[in-house]
Computed example of a mutant assay.
Amino acid sequence: MPGLYLVAILISAAGVAALDARWRLAAWAAPGRTLAAVGLGTAFFLVWDAVGIAAGVFVKGGSPLLLGIDLAPHLPLEEPFFLAFLCYLALVCWSGAMRLREARPDAAARGRS
């Protein structure tokens, strides 16, 4: 079913955004910084992909789940969406981990030693 991979990425991103909204971890706490971090991370990984494609390391496999639209040879349309999702997920996970770390009662004592 063409497009299913992109739909899965978007549904997953919506789930992460719901957690972010509920706990105000990234985009709801600092939208500008979140957009910048996700944008820079996505751009970095797209350059990484381009280098890998040029070196012949990364190739696009044939999958019926892809839309079939390529932005460049071996770079499907879904790739930037996946990379943005990956960056956003990492940022939300990091923010959540830092929130949990700060909430621990003995965190202040550990920080001083």
Rank of each mutant, 00 (worst) to 15 (best):
M1T: 14
P2D: 00
L4T: 09
L4S: 07
L6F: 00
V7Q: 05
A8H: 15
I11M: 15
S12M: 04
A13K: 00
A13L: 06
A17G: 11
A17H: 03
D20I: 09
D20T: 06
R24C: 13
A26N: 00
A27G: 11
A29Q: 11
A29C: 10
A30H: 13
P31S: 09
A36Q: 05
A37N: 08
A37C: 13
V38K: 02
L40V: 11
L40S: 12
G41A: 00
L46T: 03
W48Q: 09
W48E: 06
D49E: 13
A50I: 03
V51I: 11
G52E: 04
G52Q: 11
A55V: 12
A55M: 13
G56A: 07
V59A: 15
V59H: 14
G61Q: 08
G61L: 10
G62K: 14
G62I: 12
L66Y: 09
L67A: 14
I69T: 12
D70S: 14
L71W: 02
L71Q: 02
L71T: 09
F81L: 10
C93F: 15
G96R: 04
G96I: 03
M98Y: 13
M98Q: 15
P105H: 14
D106Y: 00
A107K: 01
G111Q: 13
G111K: 12
S113L: 15
